[in-house]
Amino acid sequence: MSFVKLSASALAITAVSAGSALARDNVQVAGSSTVLPYASIVAEAFGENFDFPTPVVESGGSSAGLARFCEGVGENTIDIANASRAIRPGEVEECAANGVTDIIEVRFGYDGIVFASQIDGPAFTAFEPADIFNALAPTVLVDGELVDNPYTMWSDFNPELPEAEILAFIPGTKHGTREVFEEQVVAAGCEATGAFEAMMASGMSEDDAEDACLAVRTDGRSVDIDGDYTETLARIDANPNGIGVFGLAFYENNTDKLKVATMSGVAPNTETIASGEYPVSRPLFFYIKGAHLDVIPGLKEYAEFFVSDAIAGPDGPLSNYGLVSDPELGSTQAMVAAEETMQ
């Protein structure tokens, strides 16, 4: 019968430990997989430099992180959501409906988005947004007519580009990067090629034309990558003609495997992104749950530490990893210190 006694006491121990599990002493973060590397650097340094335990940072995408953020207030919800895009009004409403009202929005820097290809592949060294649009849109403008995309080679529409099959690996729709890619490259290319005007002229409403601009072809030449950059890298490794979308930091860590293309004649690096010369970059955010500030030990210290000059400044470890420092970091620091919530 000792077997029964043993299992009964085991159950009891488990129950007791579950009962006492109500005082969380660590900061809990979730969200964008683009922000995760930066957040892990900050979390490690925070654990090393403060007496608080190292925060826990999960990934899963901006939208998934914000959805968890908006689940409610309490120790079994997260304190901070990382996002590679700004929170949407719909998400703020969702938050408010669940009692998450005091949200502090913190922009801590910028991330450049680069187009890179296999180092031994064709010479993709210069792109314009129009090239990307012509390669990836389902309908393009050919001789003033909107037609289904006939192009199979990059050289079909731009003789300066190499004679290589079109194959692009772009971030999937759950990634914040996709939105930046659409807005700053595809939409820009749509306007630059005149396709947008042609769509408007063909009787589409402005909204419909904008949506049509952002569509990508579905014949297999554009591949959505729902995983992270390592998956894109693996695809590029296997396809010499492939072009992939990466974050600047990821590219800089893999310069021995990838070669980067300029966009509108500007090479991506931290200087050109900070100055705004390189056109494709996006702000990175994290959102703090105001109601948790006085409850979770170390939450405010973590936020202040994250945006401090020593971390997110131009000489800090985040910049060293590839973050483009925010020129307005000073006002962000003041905002976090004053716990200014979003209006």
Binding site: I13, S40, E58
Partner: peptide, 18 residues
């Protein structure tokens, strides 16, 4: 939430469970 950046040892054996 067990996949992510979690870089710490628990303070005690029982504390490790929660």
């Amino acid at each position: 939430g067990m996949v992510g950046f979690i870089a710490r040892y628990p303070d005690s054996f029982l504390g490790g469970f929660e």
